[in-house]
């Protein structure tokens, strides 16, 4: 009995499957990392193996080049402020939409959902005009309002679903205790929906961090460029120094991964707080 249990706990099949996928993921990353230590041409001598001579200059020039730190700072500022606002506003709205059972509530819910279905690029001209009217062109401050607006439909969608799934008796108990709706939100809802907040944040993190389009049309000023926009100066009309691009983009993926790890730890916390459903 004990022996069979231990065997069950080894999960050999699961490990084999996941290790296979690990290989499918890590092989391209291996290619990415080794090639970022080559030169424009030596990448192609043997793209899948370590370089004959390690070329650290791709990284050192990037790190020495002060601009990339500015770009990095800008991206970080824009993304973090946008994420905080999206999760905050979307959780307030999601709470209201889950609890506010009326026609207006349903209409507003679908009004948000509709925003997921049209590519925002189409609205570029209008957004440019709005930003110019607000005097935000050529500054990174033009980006957060758009990112928050872009993130809200998905945020509202995910968070409303999560809050709706919370058991009704939770509220009943709280209301009997005399808690206001504000207190219910901050004391009961927020702690319970932490995994959903993390999901929303991670889901939006990627498009915010890797967005090129809006920085491209809004920002010319060197001091206000975002990381990905900064990278495009490595792209020529007819030739691109891919080894440098790979180096910069390898560096740029790291913060996203760190943020992901930080936020995904919320899932684990969420388990202890949130095993309420059944």
């Amino acid at each position: 009995m004990r022996g069979s249990l231990r065997k069950e706990n080894r999960h050999i099949f699961s490990h084999i499957v996941l290790l296979l996928w690990t290989f499918v993921v890590l092989f391209p990353i291996w290619v990415l990392v080794i090639n970022s230590f080559k030169t424009r041409l030596t990448i192609y001598e043997n793209p899948f193996w370590i370089p004959k001579t390690w070329e650290f200059s791709n990284y050192t020039t990037v790190l020495r080049d002060g601009d990339f730190f500015t770009y990095f700072k800008n991206s970080f500022f824009v993304v973090s402020i946008s994420l905080v606002l999206v999760t905050l506003l979307a959780s307030l709205a999601g709470y209201a939409l889950a609890r506010y059972k009326s026609r207006i509530g349903t209409i507003i819910y679908y009004f948000f959902i509709a925003g997921m279905m049209i590519p925002i690029k189409i609205a570029s001209i209008k957004l440019l005009e709005i930003m110019r009217a607000l005097g935000l062109l050529n500054t990174i401050y033009a980006l957060p309002p758009i990112y928050v607006a872009m993130g809200l439909p998905v945020g509202v969608f995910i968070l409303t679903t999560f809050i709706r799934e919370l058991p009704e008796d939770l509220y009943e108990a709280a209301i009997i205790d005399g808690a206001s709706s504000g207190k219910i939100y901050s004391m009961i809802i927020l702690p319970l929906i932490r995994p959903a907040l993390a999901t929303t944040a991670i889901y939006n993190l990627i498009p915010f961090w890797n967005d090129l389009w809006f920085p491209l049309i809004f920002i010319n000023d060197e001091r206000h460029k975002t990381l990905l926009l900064g990278v495009t100066r490595l792209f020529g009309q007819y030739q691109t120094d891919w080894s440098k691009v790979l180096a910069v983009l390898t560096l740029s993926a790291i913060p996203v991964l760190v943020l992901y790890l930080a936020m995904s730890s919320q899932f684990i916390k969420g388990v202890t707080a949130g095993s309420v459903k059944g």
């Binding site: 606002l85 506003l89 979307a90 307030l92 709205a93 709470y95 209201a96 939409l97 609890r99 506010y100 009326s102 207006i104 509530g105 507003i108 009004f111 948000f112 509709a114 925003g115 049209i118 925002i120 189409i122 609205a123 001209i125 209008k126 957004l127 709005i130 309002p145 758009i146 928050v148 607006a149 872009m150 809200l152 439909p153 509202v156 709706s181 504000g182 939100y185």
Partner: peptide, 28 residues
Amino acid sequence: RHFPWLLYLAPALLVYTVFMAFPLIDSL
């Protein structure tokens, strides 16, 4: 009461309407 719920919705609705819904509708 509609009031408190609309208050919760207001910030999200405002940002979403000004920077997304209105430009999108105008473009469509």
